[in-house]
Simulated scan of single mutants.
Amino acid sequence: MADDLDRDKVAKAYARWAPIYDMVFGQVFERGRKAAIAAVEATGGGRILEVGVGTGISLPDYRRTNRLFGVDISEPMLRKAQERVVAQKLDNVEVLSVMDATKLAFPDGWFDVVVAQYVITAVPDPEGTLDEFARVVKPGGEIILVNHIGAESGPRKIFEAAFAPLARKLGWRPEFPWERLARWVEKAPGIRFIDRKPMPPLGHFSLIRFGRVAGAPSLQAAE
């Protein structure tokens, strides 16, 4: 179910953010990044796909025993990531590539973990993106998200609705409801909900984990 976020507009928005992204959002998103990486490491790690890798700010925090693959829609953001890989000698990063999250160029069941930090509210087709995550994660693997979840009621819901038009110009949707993720997992063959944990300080962001059931067929085969 696509909506009014446009792929090219999102790419252009993040191209503008690239030079200052770490300075503006580095500290703001740090706790969520750390929590996502801790969740990845708790699975045992392995071959990891980070979708929306951006400037690669999280790449140094993974254990060097992991093999990392990073994709993003923004080439300027990925150039920053590549500079970081070279500067910090991150030899466990195997791929950094411009890629549409709904058309991942990887085989079925290729990754032990798919992680996406602050991504699902910034893609035109969240459900199609999640379908691709489900396709490329192996049976027994996990999909780990950190994302803003819209308020269900109260002043924050009103603010998010009012802020939405401007937020879309900046590259994301602030009013994204939990219900969309709940509906997706109900319909996704072989995918189970594991956990949703609100992130401090105010619980505006959540760490969310889905698992692909061991022995489950690929999403395409199930269809």
Rank of each mutant, 00 (worst) to 15 (best):
V93I: 03
F205V: 01
S97V: 09
A81C: 13
F159S: 02
P126R: 00
V123L: 05
F133C: 10
R168C: 03
F163H: 13
F111V: 07
G154K: 03
F193T: 07
F205M: 13
G128C: 10
V98Y: 06
F205S: 12
W178D: 11
V185M: 05
L104E: 11
L104P: 12
E175F: 09
V119Y: 08
V85I: 14
W172L: 05
G128P: 02
P165G: 03
R156D: 12
S153Y: 14
F193I: 12
A167C: 14
G109W: 08
R173N: 09
P198T: 05
I73K: 04
K80N: 12
S97G: 11
V115Q: 04
G190V: 11
A81D: 06
V85E: 11
D72H: 11
R180T: 14
V137P: 10
A122I: 02
L202S: 13
E179Y: 01
L96R: 08
I158L: 15
I191L: 12
R156Y: 00
D100P: 03
V86R: 14
V93Q: 03
L145C: 08
R168F: 02
E160P: 08
A101H: 04
P76D: 06
F205I: 02
R168H: 12
I194M: 14
E152Q: 13
P124Q: 02
M99T: 08
Q117W: 00
V123F: 00
A188W: 01
W172K: 02
A101M: 08
V86M: 10
L130T: 07
V185D: 02
T129E: 11
I149C: 00
P76N: 05
V71T: 14
P200C: 05
K103M: 04
A151L: 03
W178V: 10
V185H: 11
A162F: 06
A151Q: 10
R84E: 05
R183V: 11
G154D: 00
A151Y: 07
P139W: 09
V71G: 01
A167Q: 03
W172I: 04
W172G: 08
M199I: 14
L90T: 09
V114F: 02
E83N: 06
N147K: 00
L104C: 12
G154P: 03
K103Y: 01
S153F: 13
L181G: 07
K187R: 15
I120L: 13
W178R: 15
W178Q: 15
E160N: 05
L145E: 09
V93D: 01
K89W: 09
K157H: 07
L145V: 00
K80D: 11
K103L: 10
G70W: 06
A151I: 04
K103T: 10
F106D: 03
W184R: 02
V85Q: 05
